[in-house]
């Protein structure tokens, strides 16, 4: 089985188990303030790391290319409170423009 299938199935199974277990365990198990706090911080850490790695690396090498422009435009769009699809679209369009131009 390829890595793609393992990742697809493994992620899907665990995602559902996590969702279903939340609906099934007693509320007090997960309502500890420390767990709540960690739960709020984990997505911030992982998503920020993903932004950085996806923007400035290719395999294990660091590099700067058209994605820097795409990311900057996305950031401007977010500052201007643009909706999510517009943020992604503006990044793609600007990045593609720079890619053609260079």
């Amino acid at each position: 089985m390829s890595a793609f299938w393992i990742a697809t199935i493994g992620t899907s199974v665990i995602a559902f188990v996590l969702k279903y277990s939340g609906h099934s365990v007693p509320e007090r198990w997960l309502s500890h303030p420390k767990i709540q706090r960690i739960n709020a911080l984990i997505p911030i850490a992982l998503l920020s790391a993903l932004v950085a790695v996806q923007s400035f690396s290719e395999k294990s090498q660091l590099m700067i290319d058209q994605r820097l422009v795409g990311l900057s435009v996305a950031m401007i769009a977010l500052f201007l409170k643009a909706p999510f699809p517009l943020v992604v679209l503006s990044a793609a369009v600007s990045s593609a423009a720079v890619y053609h131009w260079l």
């Binding site: 990311l71 999510f84 793609a92």
Partner: peptide
């Protein structure tokens, strides 16, 4: 660039 922009969003 769409993927990092999605993460940023």
């Amino acid at each position: 660039s769409a993927v990092p922009a999605a993460f940023l969003g």
